[in-house]
């Protein structure tokens, strides 16, 4: 039976006079990767903090792993693992000590904890750095350790708050690989990101949050379709678009369109087939705060 890992309805939260979340509804099916996309200050971290029991909601219902975050806090905690926006690692301890500490705190025996630490150090390519203090780690290593720590024991729901912010391209891709691997094991992953490419690459479902509201949700394809389908662009010698024609993207349609156009365009005209990118979606959706799209 496929249940929802996360169910949120009518969630509101404000800090003093500042409204951070104004009526959020979300459902994340178990075993899927969900990306929450939004600019800085949109309410992403607050939403994660509420789902992970750090902050209490003002209004609305929030269920994680089948438990209510307000009334069944302890059960929720047994079902989640949080990797916050800032690497949650102990800088004074070594990588190995960090993992073993979390192992013991998670209820593993000392021996189990040692074993699990070795496995994770290997899996996250940290064996050489195992004994070094985390203070000396690079951003990428720190993030890998951070993620390894959240996987010490198996939790069905994993929260990743901006997991790749501040990482270089190589570290980012390495982290993406790990996240995809986790997804294949059937965990539910809820991640927030400012990077559209990241949401596009990893997520089954994406929601765009802006000004404390979900302004759109759906698969990457659905969101792109909202902004418009594929177009054939004709460019002149200066790379300026002189003509655009919508297309279905099939060979037949493209070749028919190009045949029709071939006679009427000046020599030197070039062709570009453009699909709307997630960037187009993002800009379109977050430009106007009032507009609410449902896909």
């Amino acid at each position: 039976m496929k249940q929802s890992a996360i169910e949120i309805s009518g969630l509101r939260k404000s800090f003093g006079k500042q409204t951070v979340l104004s009526g959020v509804d979300l459902t994340v099916p178990a075993g899927t990767v969900f990306a929450l996309l939004g600019p800085n200050g949109a309410g992403k971290t607050t939403l994660i903090n509420i789902m992970s029991t750090l902050v209490s909601p003002d209004e609305g219902k929030v269920n994680v792993g089948g438990y209510d975050v307000l009334t069944e806090r302890d059960q929720v905690k047994q079902n989640i693992s949080l990797t916050g926006q800032f690497a949650a690692v102990d800088e004074v301890l070594s990588a190995e000590e960090n993992l073993r500490m979390i192992g013991r705190l998670s209820g593993l025996t000392a021996a189990q904890s040692r074993l699990r630490t070795m496995e994770l150090l290997k899996a996250f390519d940290l064996v050489d750095a195992a004994k070094k203090r985390v203070k000396t780690f690079s951003g990428g290593m720190r993030r890998r350790l951070d993620l390894a720590i959240s996987l010490v024991v198996s939790r069905p729901v994993i929260f990743l708050d901006e997991p790749t912010t501040g990482l270089d391209t190589i570290s980012r891709r390495a982290l993406w690989d790990i996240i995809s691997q986790l997804a294949r094991q059937g965990r539910t992953i809820f991640l927030t990101t400012q990077y559209l490419e990241e949401a596009d690459q990893l997520a089954d479902q994406i929601a765009v949050i802006n000004g404390g509201r979900i302004v759109a949700s759906g698969s990457a394809e659905q969101l792109k379709a909202r902004v418009g389908g594929e177009v054939i662009e004709l460019l002149n010698a200066h790379d300026e678009v002189i003509h655009t024609v919508p297309t279905t993207g099939s060979i037949q349609d493209i070749s028919r369109t190009l045949n029709d156009l071939a006679h009427s365009v000046p020599p030197g005209t070039r062709v570009n087939i453009r699909r709307p990118s997630m960037d187009d979606v993002f800009v379109a959706l977050t430009a106007n705060k009032k507009e609410v799209l449902h896909v």
Partner: peptide
């Protein structure tokens, strides 16, 4: 290998305290 074993019972208050004491002693 990223997969962890089956779910475990949460640590007792005693274990939790001991782990944090040893952490702070290491820090010191």
């Amino acid at each position: 290998m990223i997969a962890a074993d089956k779910p475990v019972k949460p640590a007792s208050l005693m274990t939790t305290n001991l782990v944090f004491i040893s952490r702070s002693l290491r820090h010191s």
